[in-house]
Amino acid sequence: MRSNKLGWILLAPTLLILFFFGVLPFVYVVFVSFHQWNPFAASPEMIFNGADNFRRIVFDSAFLNSLGVTVAFVLFAVISEVIIGYMLAQAFMREFPGKAFFRTIHTLPLIMAPIIVGSVWKLMTTPSIGIIPHYLDKWFGISMNIGTSAPAAFFTIVVMDIWHWTPLVTLTLIAALVSLPRDPFEQAQIDGANKRQIFWHITLPMIAPALIATVFIRLMDALRTVDEVWMLTGGGPGSSTRFLGVHIFKEVFPKTNYGYGSTISVIVLYLTIVVCWLLYVSMLAPRNNRKG
C-alpha cells in the first residue's frame, strides 16, 4: 500500500500539470463550443446556444473548403513523406562515403521552428527575389507565383512540409530497420523471395508498428499545420491554402469568434481521432485479433 501511495505522490506533479494545461483547457473548449461568445464585441457575454455552432458548421462552405484543402494536403504530404522517408532510411542503412555527414545534414530541417521554415520558404518563393521562381523560369521557362496561382501555392506548401518533416520519418524508420533481426531476411532469400517480395512480405510487416506510429504523428501534425502556411501564403490566394488550422486561427483571432472557433477545433479533434482510429483498426487490429 505504501508503495502505491508513493507512486501517486511521485505522479502528482505530472498529473497536476496535465490537468491544468491539458484536461481543463480541453473541457473549457468543449464548453465554449456550445456558446456564442465574442469577448471583444459590443456584447461580450457568453451566450449558450446549444448545438447551433455545430449545425452551422455543416453548412459552412468556408469550413468545408478548408476541410477539403486540408485532406488533400495531408494525403499529398504524408504519403510522400513516408515513401521518401523510407527510401532515405534504406539508403542510410548502407555504407557510403560521407554517410555520417549526410545523415546530420538531412536532419537539420527538423530542428527549425515552423515559423522560420515558413519565412525562409517565403523568401525563396517570392517572385522577382526568390531563388525557386528564378531558376524555374531560367531553366524550364515556368513562371511561378504563389501569390496568384492556387496550385503553385498549394504544392509549395506540400513540398515545404515534405522538406521539413521527411527527416522525422527517416529517423524513426532507421531505428525500426536497425532493430530488425537479420536472419528472417536471409531466410527469405533462400526461400526464393526477390527484393520486391521481401519488401512486401517481410520488411513492411516487420516495421509496420513503427511505420504506423510515424504516420499517426505526421497525420496529427499535418492536420493542425498553421505557422508555416500562415507565414508563406496566409491561407491564400483566395482560400486555396486555408487549411483547418489557418481557418480556426482566422475565425478566432481576427474575427474574435471564440465560440464558433472552439466548435471547429472540437470537430477537427474528433476527425483526427476518427482517422487515426480507422488507420489503427485497418492496419494493426486484424493482426492482434488473429493472434488471440
Binding site: D183, Q189, N194
Partner: peptide, 21 residues
C-alpha cells in the same frame, strides 16, 4: 543467388517470420 541453388536452410535462431502464422 541463394534462391536458385535449390537448398533449404535452418538457422540457429530459426529465423521464423514473426508476423506470419
Amino acid at each position: 543467388i541463394p534462391k536458385d541453388r535449390d537448398i533449404a536452410m535452418v538457422f540457429q535462431s530459426y529465423a521464423l517470420y514473426p508476423h506470419k502464422t
